[in-house]
């Protein structure tokens, strides 16, 4: 493996990716990635609005992974011990880590954010419909949809406001690209690319 790491690095570069992380994603990690990303873009003389938009996309995607990734690292044993095993479910929840991939790159004059995570197969249909709907909307329709959606009471499955993708679609310079790859009976890999 040690002989092929360079190939991996070169493969990322070929795709235009200059920042990447794959593994357990936490709020703190995202904050630090965001800070380094801003610093890097500043050195490239990117405009303030591009920096903020790319940063916002990383935050929304990272928080989507934290909240919705089907690939978790529960560290069950330690937690049961830590809280006396009284309420293992609750104890695991706070310590649970979500896995996913976050990358940021630059191609053909545009920054992009490309992210992915595992999701449950039964959620694929709904998410696909939602994203396809966004792809077909122009900026004004997106604005109206955003406002209407913001007023809705959050549904039970949504831990955020359900607004993340709409906001991303509004700030992107092209329609959001996405893909679902079925992995097995339970899970699919969801990937999404936003061009800023």
């Amino acid at each position: 493996m040690v002989q092929t790491l360079y190939d991996f690095k070169r493969d990322l570069s070929k795709r235009g990716i200059f920042l990447s992380f794959s593994g357990p994603i936490s709020q703190d990690l995202m904050v630090e990635m965001g800070a380094t990303l801003k610093q890097k873009m500043k050195l490239e003389d990117a405009s303030k609005s591009s920096v903020l938009r790319v940063f916002a996309m990383v935050v929304e995607n990272a928080q989507n992974i934290i909240h919705y990734s089907a690939e978790k690292y529960p560290r069950k044993k330690q937690n049961e011990k830590a809280c006396g095993g009284e309420d293992p479910v609750k104890c695991c929840e706070s310590e649970e880590l979500s896995l996913g991939i976050i990358t940021v790159g630059y191609e053909e004059g545009y920054y992009f954010v490309l992210c992915g995570n595992m999701i449950e197969n039964e959620k694929v249909k709904g998410l696909k419909e939602k994203l396809s709907k966004l792809q077909g909307m122009n900026k004004d329709e997106l604005k109206q949809f955003y406002k209407a959606q913001r007023k809705q009471k959050p549904d039970k499955t949504s831990k955020g406001g359900g607004l993340g993708f709409i906001e991303m679609a509004r700030k992107a310079s092209r329609p959001i690209e996405f893909d679902f790859k079925k992995i097995d009976e339970d899970l699919s890999f969801f990937s999404v690319k936003i061009i800023i």
């Binding site: 929304e60 913001r150 955020g160 607004l163 993340g164 906001e167």
Partner: peptide
């Protein structure tokens, strides 16, 4: 200076 989409819902 920056707020995520779920914060914007709380502002509402």
């Amino acid at each position: 200076s920056y707020f995520n989409s779920s914060s914007s819902k709380v502002f509402l």
